[in-house]
């Protein structure tokens, strides 16, 4: 039974895309993934803009102090098992919006850094924006994690 469930989870990941704050470029790139060329529906991915239905939350943009609460709430409203993909450099670390060098991310007076400052992140997809294939790869890693269960 668990094998069947794991198979089904791997074959039907529904995504919700959350724009936390930033330049919107990654949003557009996510839309590219849905175009005929990349067509993620063949992998079972459906675009459900609703955290209640989604298994994978794709977040893009850096987290501001204002949006941290909302991101947390939307993550809370997803039902287990759930995985989070941080899309783009801003979502991974804060990108050009934060101070500090290399790994040392220091928050500015509005931006607190990557999405992992607000919610636990499972997959990081660097890129500014990531190429659609990179997004697909990131989702594929998240699917592998989903298969293993919670």
């Amino acid at each position: 039974m668990m094998g069947l469930m794991s198979w089904a989870r791997g074959k039907s990941p529904w995504i919700a895309v959350l724009h936390a704050g930033g330049c919107n470029n990654c949003d557009i790139e996510v839309l590219d993934v849905l175009t005929p060329r990349f067509d993620v529906e063949r992998l079972g991915v459906l675009w459900k803009q609703n955290p209640r239905h989604a298994d994978i939350l794709i977040t893009n943009g850096c987290v501001s102090k204002h949006s941290k609460v909302f991101i947390k709430r939307i993550y809370d409203q997803m039902l287990a098992p759930k995985k989070v993909v941080a899309l783009g450099s801003c979502a991974c670390t804060g990108g050009i919006y934060v101070e500090g060098e290399g790994r040392n991310v220091e928050e500015t007076h509005t931006i607190i850094g990557g999405v992992d400052k607000a919610i636990p992140v499972d997959v990081y997809v660097p890129g500014c924006p990531p190429k659609p294939e990179a997004i697909i790869q990131g989702v594929a890693i998240a699917i592998e994690k989903l298969k293993k269960g919670d």
Binding site: V69, R73, I74, Q77, A80, G149
Partner: peptide, 21 residues
């Protein structure tokens, strides 16, 4: 009983309004 273990998030049961409440 197929379900996953439920998460213990505080805002889980709030209505979905796109984050704002």
């Amino acid at each position: 009983k197929w379900g996953a273990t439920p998460s213990e998030a505080e805002d889980k049961t709030m209505p979905f309004t796109g984050g704002t409440l």
